[in-house]
């Protein structure tokens, strides 16, 4: 079978045996995805709650510690994620219109943004901090006399824990986007309508929204 880039050659609009019609199937998938996103919100809720508790307890130190982060790098990453959210919304739109080329292009751009986010995070944040010994654990080194070392370690635990969990979600997003793009590109028979793109899009918006909260909490803390 020849694979065309311009139109979708998949078996379109298949209804699985447990459903009555396509509308029911699609609505059910979307509800399932939202229910899953609720669990994701609660996952991150724990990290946000821990942050709230300890910032309440150690606000002056936390303010001093947040200056360890560069708000410009976080800002660039925020902008990149917002762009990727926009392009994934476009991808859903094009998939609904069954325009294969445009769908793939938008998904590709989204994936590129996600990758850029991780690369920037690694190169300009994680690796320099790691080299300075600013990571939680027995190897933690700290020489700022104004901030107790244990509070700094707690702060870095929260920072690495929360952004690490978020980064893991970005990584999972990259893998899923790549698989989806491959399946769309080769007209895989499991892609029968735009729902996979829509559901992955919902996931990606969620990942972005988490960052929208993380950025001000960690990078733009008021005194």
């Amino acid at each position: 079978m020849a694979i065309s880039l311009n139109k979708m050659n998949q078996p379109q609009d298949v209804v699985y045996e447990q459903f009555e019609d396509l509308a029911q199937q699609q609505e059910t998938y979307v509800i399932g995805m939202w229910a899953f996103l609720v669990t994701e919100v609660m996952f991150f809720g724990v990290m946000f709650m821990s942050y709230v508790v300890y910032r309440w307890k150690y606000q002056p130190y936390f303010y001093a510690l947040h200056q360890e982060l560069d708000w410009r790098i976080g800002g660039i990453n925020t902008f990149i994620l917002l762009l990727s959210s926009f392009s994934v919304a476009l991808a859903v739109h094009f998939h609904q219109k069954k325009k294969k080329m445009q769908t793939l292009a938008c998904l590709g751009f989204t994936n590129l943004c996600a990758l850029a986010f991780l690369v920037i995070k690694m190169l300009f944040e994680y690796i320099p901090k790691w080299n300075h010994g600013h990571y939680p654990g027995p190897g933690f080194t700290w020489d700022n006399p104004n901030i107790p070392g244990n509070i700094a370690q707690l702060w870095y635990s929260l920072y690495f824990g929360t952004t690490g969990l978020h980064g893991l979600h970005v990584l999972i997003g990259i893998i899923l986007f790549s698989v989806l793009m491959f399946m769309i590109a080769v007209d895989h028979p499991a892609i029968t309508d735009y729902l996979p793109t829509e559901m992955l899009g919902l996931y990606w918006h969620f990942v972005d929204i988490v960052w929208i909260f993380l950025y001000p909490l960690y990078y733009l803390m008021p005194k």
Binding site: M42, G45, V46, N150, L154
Partner: peptide, 27 residues
């Protein structure tokens, strides 16, 4: 999900010594 991530934090505390719940680190 709340308990899942909480238990995972305990795993990290045992394995990687991060300290959300550790009194030594002000947790």
């Amino acid at each position: 999900p709340v308990v899942a991530i909480t238990l995972l934090l305990v795993v990290f505390e045992r394995v990687a010594k991060i300290g959300i719940f550790s009194p030594e680190l002000g947790g």
